[in-house]
Nucleic acid binder design. Sequence first.
DNA 1: GTGAAAGCGCTAACAG
DNA 2: CTGTTAGCGCTTTCAC
Lengths: 365, 365
Amino acid sequence: MSIEHDRTPPTISEVAEAAGVGRATVARTLGGYGSVSPRTRDRILAVARELGYRPNSLARSMTTGETRTLGVVLADVGNPFFVGVLRGLGEAARSAGYDVLVLSTDEDRNREAAAIDVLVGKQVDGIVLSPAAGRSDVVPHLDIVAKRAIPLVLLDRLVDTVEADAVVINNREASRQAVAALIARGHRRVGFVWGPVTNEPAADATDLRRIIDHALWSDGERLLGYLDALEEAGIPFDTSLVTHVLKHEPQATRAVLGMLALSDPPTAIFATETDALTGTLRAIRQRGLRCPDDISLIGFDDSSWASVMEPPISVVAQPVHQLGTLAAECLLARIAGSDSPASTHVLEANLIERQSVAEPSTLTR
Amino acid sequence: MSIEHDRTPPTISEVAEAAGVGRATVARTLGGYGSVSPRTRDRILAVARELGYRPNSLARSMTTGETRTLGVVLADVGNPFFVGVLRGLGEAARSAGYDVLVLSTDEDRNREAAAIDVLVGKQVDGIVLSPAAGRSDVVPHLDIVAKRAIPLVLLDRLVDTVEADAVVINNREASRQAVAALIARGHRRVGFVWGPVTNEPAADATDLRRIIDHALWSDGERLLGYLDALEEAGIPFDTSLVTHVLKHEPQATRAVLGMLALSDPPTAIFATETDALTGTLRAIRQRGLRCPDDISLIGFDDSSWASVMEPPISVVAQPVHQLGTLAAECLLARIAGSDSPASTHVLEANLIERQSVAEPSTLTR
DNA sequence: GTGAAAGCGCTAACAG
DNA sequence: CTGTTAGCGCTTTCAC
């Protein structure tokens, strides 16, 4: 059996001819539908194997109208959070017989629009999207998916103007808990590392609410949770304790360094994403500060390294895997025809307390 | 302009009719080939936009035979190494106008075979594969891609029996350097954390070579580099210093704990993957050992957290991004028709020395 | 510069 | 149980 380069793969017709039967019979056999007599079935199967026949899913999709493929549009495929979600999503999809086509946008709305176009063009059966839009922004490039009634599930971020199923976590409450834990230990100046990206810091709390309206829902919620905790404790909001930098690690380091240089620096920091956490840690190390003796710290998104750090770092852990599987299940249900009204599923993130939090040192106080 | 659920999207025919021209003209306009008079062109474009026309890439692919999609089959989409590679790969593909379909195998050969089948069925224009096969294993499920002459690039791992372009790292030399660096500091007992998975440890060096033959190429090379370094220094090989456990973090921790309990424990450890490193760190912490005072450590794959650890950890850094872009470029070149003989590209990984290595303590010596 | 017609590989009605 | 036929939406000759 020599391997020859047969540039024209065998089709159903060829199998049919070689087996001496009609095309439909072969299609039924290979497609596993309809009924075929065992005898011819076996012969067809044998011939198909012999010829190295593989179904052409493109052709199949053309006629059936379904591709058994889920499109996923994520902000950043490098972010451990999304990586975790993707694993859950992929597993759930695969076990339902679906493949997953992943596109990354780097939070760029044009790329998001392009990604949606690609997915629509490829006729995916449904789309999971973690939108790069603020909570009250309008997202015109989703019109096409609404118009074509392509099942859509929003992931991790809500958008007021989009009516679709959504799977998110209780960012606000989780954030509030984390900050409250800090306050409970006696901290009154808590830095918040990834506030919404803006050109200049919020003028005041009211201005902040306006900013939050155009920030990613998840970012806004985390900030709101922070404000909640402050308010509960009667601590006035200080704009200089919230960063508004681009979400890259070096930016976080610089911003934290800035906070630390304040005349009245934070005694604790809440870093709301993985890169914010490593960036913050770097700043702390650069200043020669020790955690938790000199400064307390809580991160977001659990990871193996966070628990093996010295000290082990307290984090708000998101159920990433479950987030992914749930998103897939939601979408699959829609694809299967469910027409219940759009609903938002809220999963719980929980604070995992380790050893990065202590009382504020009397020195820095 | 109300959004109606138009379950049958506009086709070229409909645009043609609405614009009062023939289908071919519309196809030429929308497809951007052939030539069309500016006037009709504009009218068609206007009508197409009005109708919300989107090309159906499935139909297009059916006739052209190309999908402008690259298939990628990876062992583990959760591994930071592959995540990094994927980013590079995705960027390169995207900028060439290709999409990427990623499938994960978890090192399971059956799933790998299934993944290949999916990709072949979906008519991807080329495949990047990081095979779950040992260096001298045979991979029957690749016959079909050879037979159909589907461009293939091996990623990170070589397989003797597969003739295809490949993009890998100089694992052996990088590993040798790392171990040599440890030895240069005076270590003579160096633990090696992720040796090939086997049921029982190698009986001797010869037995080990046999094992390496059926191990993943990259794993084998790293182990060979370790042996090289030992040999250079005239240090006898001790099988109890190489793990053969499954590649999951807890396994690494347990294995290292075992080594540490030896009557003559290692004074340094070389952890050849991210999870091996965190697992090793955990074992070190559990034993209450301090790095580098009590035990030295070198990891594999750089990461932000490794450099922010206390102490910052020395690692062998792989050019992950470049690995990805190069793989994409290779594949794209083949797709474009290059027929130069298959070649293997070897990229360099380099040791980044930080502060996790010191002289062995006189105590544990 | 433009249109008519064939066909990519498959499924789905419908006959037989 | 099996074969014939008609498309799916697009590109691509090939005439006009």
